[in-house]
């Protein structure tokens, strides 16, 4: 089947198969990098690469959670609101209890939100769209209620100095958010490729009924992926809150759509069963470098939105062609 999908090309008399559907995004990514490098001598510098990797780390962590949910043919619309809520609970807890309890409370908040959404999907049998939409409203409201709609800016100096390292620190050349993102990637890559849980996630996304008949506890898998999505949103929120040195009640608003966009651009199917965190890397980096390049070139942010939308359309179109052919 793969061969049927592959395009046959001939260069220098040698025949090779290039699956454009599979490598389309990586190839487009490299072409984009080349074009932007020609257009600006500020683009492909070590400093700027580090800058984009640091910026993209937060979106990557969130998008990994979305990837897990999409692989089971679900969708998590609550990620952005969970980010806002965790930003507030973390900042408030940092003020009251200090660094470690603050971070733990933040992580537990995200995990709790994700678990509730998972239970609504897995046990109460609500559609993922509906359950996560409901959680979006609840988390949004709680984030605003937590401090009467005001940001938390009075984190004590001794706490904020250490906390800032999570979002703005470096280990050698590497920004701390990037290191966190790499660790998240390695764990999830291992889980998806080498563990029973990973195989079950793909199986549930591929065909729920078949997975159920083969003895997989589908409900439990759904609860786990939503809980992990909440956990990863919380982790991203803590990095973001550390970058902003304050808790913000509406900071996550755009992240749900961004994580969906990045995951879809990467090639993970909305219908589940195909894709993974490696795909998501390309989706996130594509958006990250494109936005950065356009910012450096001074291209309007209005135009940037149009371009990101166009990339999503092209990416989904390519993925759907591949699906139809197979």
């Amino acid at each position: 089947m793969e061969k049927a999908v592959a395009e046959t090309n001939r260069i220098n008399g040698r025949k090779f198969n290039l699956d454009l559907n599979k490598y389309g995004i990586p190839i487009a990514f490299v072409i984009m990098m080349i074009v932007l490098t020609f257009l600006s001598d500020r683009f492909l510098t070590l400093n700027n690469i580090r800058n984009v990797l640091r910026q993209s780390s937060i979106l990557f962590i969130v998008a990994c959670g979305q990837t897990l949910v999409l692989l089971t043919s679900g969708i998590d619309l609550s990620q952005g609101s969970v980010i806002s809520l965790v930003s507030m609970t973390t900042a408030l807890s940092l003020c009251k209890y200090g660094l470690v309890p603050g971070v733990i409370i933040g992580i537990l908040t995200g995990l709790a939100c994700g678990s509730v959404t998972g239970l609504l999907v897995g046990k109460a049998k609500l559609l993922p769209f509906v359950a996560s939409l409901a959680m979006q409203y609840i988390a949004d409201g709680l984030a605003l209620i937590s401090n009467n709609g005001l940001p938390v800016t009075n984190i004590p100096g001794n706490v904020i100095n250490k906390f800032f390292v999570i979002g703005g620190g470096y280990v050698g050349w590497f920004p701390v958010p990037l290191i966190i993102a790499i660790v998240v990637f390695l764990i999830l890559y291992f889980v998806l490729k080498k563990t029973k849980l990973g195989r079950y996630i793909y199986a549930v996304g591929g065909n729920k009924e078949a997975a159920r008949l083969s003895g997989i506890n589908v409900d439990r898998i759904q609860i786990i992926v939503f809980a992990l999505s909440g956990l990863l949103s919380a982790l991203a929120s803590i990095v973001l809150t550390a970058r902003m040195v304050s808790g913000q009640p509406i900071v996550g608003q755009e992240y749900s759509m961004q994580s969906l966009g990045a995951t879809v651009i990467g090639g993970t199917l909305l219908t589940g069963g195909k894709g993974g965190v490696t795909n998501t890397i390309f989706g996130v980096l594509f958006i990250g470098f494109m936005t950065n390049g356009l910012n450096i070139l001074g291209i309007s942010t209005f135009v940037q939105r149009v371009l990101i939308g166009a990339v999503i359309i092209i990416s989904v179109y390519m993925t759907s062609i591949k699906k139809k052919r197979s």
């Binding site: 900071v251 608003q253 936005t291 910012n295």
Partner: peptide, 12 residues
């Protein structure tokens, strides 16, 4: 609401 986006723009 796009605090994070603006931070990225400043970095860029």
């Amino acid at each position: 609401a796009n605090v994070s986006k603006q931070i990225n723009q400043v970095e860029d």
